[in-house]
Design a protein around this nucleic acid. Structure first.
Length: 206
DNA sequence: TGCCAGGCCCTCTTTAGGGCCTT
């Protein structure tokens, strides 16, 4: 199975269009259901970290001030990812920051993003909700480190993705749940999910 | 003055509204 880069950002706010900047990025490479490599760094974008964000993440202004410049971190992150397809939990959020921070670093960003929220809504419609922590508990997956830190959340998103790929193989008989299938699945209208998975299922053996 | 994200998705919908999800 081809590797997938699972990413998570910690930021100063909700939208780069409103001036929010990244404070930390973590990326884990998932291959064959296992994490095979990791990238993590705080970054200094020269902005103030709101008190609310420090309470949520534990990331302080002093930590960010001591971190390497955001442009250098993002250039390193882009080299780490290469042209691998990407996954994030609520990918619309992380994709916005990935593209905005890479643009500031003058680095191209063309990776396709799949979203574990959209996938979870299709594969597990009976989950109590689709927050990352709730899904980790719902599927009885291990927790990693401090929630709302980038590496811990990226590890949990990767564990969730690996669990989805396992279920696609075991429950829906999908032989090869690669990133292209994940992209098709997350775009698929919910009533058509079963038909899509059936088209990708291995033929039943006699 | 008052507002300030945005894409997805459900429903008391479709000429709309509001909750979810991320920090």
């Amino acid at each position: 199975m081809s590797p997938i880069a699972v990413i998570d950002f910690e930021t100063t706010g909700i939208s780069p269009g409103q001036g929010a900047r990244a404070t930390e990025v973590a990326i884990v490479l998932l291959e064959g259901g296992r994490v095979v490599d990791r990238f993590q760094s705080l970054m200094n974008a020269g902005v103030h970290v709101p008190h609310f964000i420090t309470q949520l993440t534990g990331i302080t202004n002093a930590m960010v001030a001591a971190a390497p410049p955001a442009e250098r971190v993002m250039a390193d992150a882009a080299r780490f990812v290469g042209d691998l397809p990407m996954v994030a939990h609520n990918a619309a959020f992380d994709r916005k920051f990935w593209q905005a921070e890479l643009a500031r670093a003058e680095v191209q960003a063309a990776q396709p993003f799949a979203c574990t929220v959209l996938l979870s809504r299709r594969l597990y419609p009976h989950a109590p909700n689709h927050k990352l922590g709730s899904l980790v508990d719902f599927h009885r997956l291990p927790r990693f480190g401090q929630a709302h830190r980038a590496l811990a959340d990226a590890e949990m998103a990767a564990a969730l993705l690996a669990h989805m790929q396992h279920d696609l193989r075991q429950r829906w008989r999908v032989a090869c749940p690669e990133h292209t299938l994940l992209m098709a699945l997350q775009r698929c209208a919910k009533p058509a999910v079963a038909a899509l998975l059936a088209r990708h299922a291995e033929p039943a053996t006699a």
